[in-house]
């Protein structure tokens, strides 16, 4: 994941970066764990490739427009077959393969032993989290141990919501009648932002939550201090 820094350096000249000071506790560009980092890394890679392709196509267009005749040495069918078929095909097959491999990596990555299982229940308009099969619960704050893969199972009691803690991993929709999972992981202790990212009615704006990442020992203590689901749901 360290490679990301390299890409950032390379791209520092592009007008993007001055604006993209990666701060804010919801920024997917400021990963705090391997899941989010794997994706941020993919983004920087695609940004670099995309920028190159964009400049190439735009350059060719401006060239043939302002230097008429400059592209005439290459036959029309070569223009089309090389530029329109072979080049995109090769690039895309490589990228798609890479994307799938990375997806498989994210779906199977286990760090720190058996994953911790938690349940995220969305309802209009707050999140409730359950631990240890519902024996413990918390509202608005998800507690996780540092350095261990956490599998979040998202469900909903009413409409569709979406669980998203951008710095820790991707999002997963909380759909009534379904239970889908996403993996998150925090490398270091801290408080990370989370937000509902599927439109769920007028309270959608405020349907935020926090993820508190605790060191392993502290985590047990925090869990022990939580009440059961009924009290949490109050």
């Amino acid at each position: 994941m360290r490679r990301a820094i390299g890409f950032r350096g390379v791209l520092a000249f592009s007008s993007v970066l001055p604006l993209a000071g990666c701060t804010g506790d919801l920024s997917a560009l400021d990963p705090a764990g391997p899941f989010a980092a794997a994706i941020a890394d993919l983004w920087w890679l695609m940004l670099a490739g995309g920028a190159a392709i964009f400049l190439l196509v735009l350059g060719l267009f401006l060239l043939v427009l302002f230097r008429p005749g400059s592209g005439r040495r290459i036959s029309p069918s070569r223009w089309i077959w090389v530029g329109g078929v072979v080049f995109p095909l090769v690039t895309l097959v490589a990228l798609i393969g890479h994307g799938l491999i990375r997806g498989e990596y994210i779906l199977n990555l286990r760090i720190g032993g058996d994953p911790v299982e938690v349940e995220a229940r969305g309802s209009m308009w707050h999140w409730e989290f359950r631990y240890a099969d519902g024996a413990r619960a918390s509202r608005g704050v998800l507690h996780i141990p540092v350095g261990r893969t956490v599998v979040v199972t998202a469900t909903s009691e009413d409409v569709i919501h979406s669980f998203w803690a951008p710095r820790l991993g991707g999002k997963i929709d909380a759909i009534p009648g379904h239970a889908a999972t996403v993996r998150i992981l925090a490398d270091r202790p801290g408080i990370y932002g989370g937000i509902c990212s599927e439109y769920c009615g007028t309270g959608h704006d405020g349907m935020r939550f926090e993820v508190h990442a605790h060191p392993a020992e502290a985590y047990e203590a925090v869990l022990a201090g939580l009440s059961g689901e009924r009290e949490a749901a109050r």
Binding site: L60, S70, I74, P76, G84, L89, L92, I96, G99
Partner: peptide, 20 residues
């Protein structure tokens, strides 16, 4: 991803037309 290939074909057909 692959749908970008035929799109590229069109773009390069236009570029080839302009170039020639």
């Amino acid at each position: 991803g692959l749908v970008a290939v035929p799109t590229g074909v069109q773009i390069f057909a236009w570029l080839a037309t302009l170039a020639h």
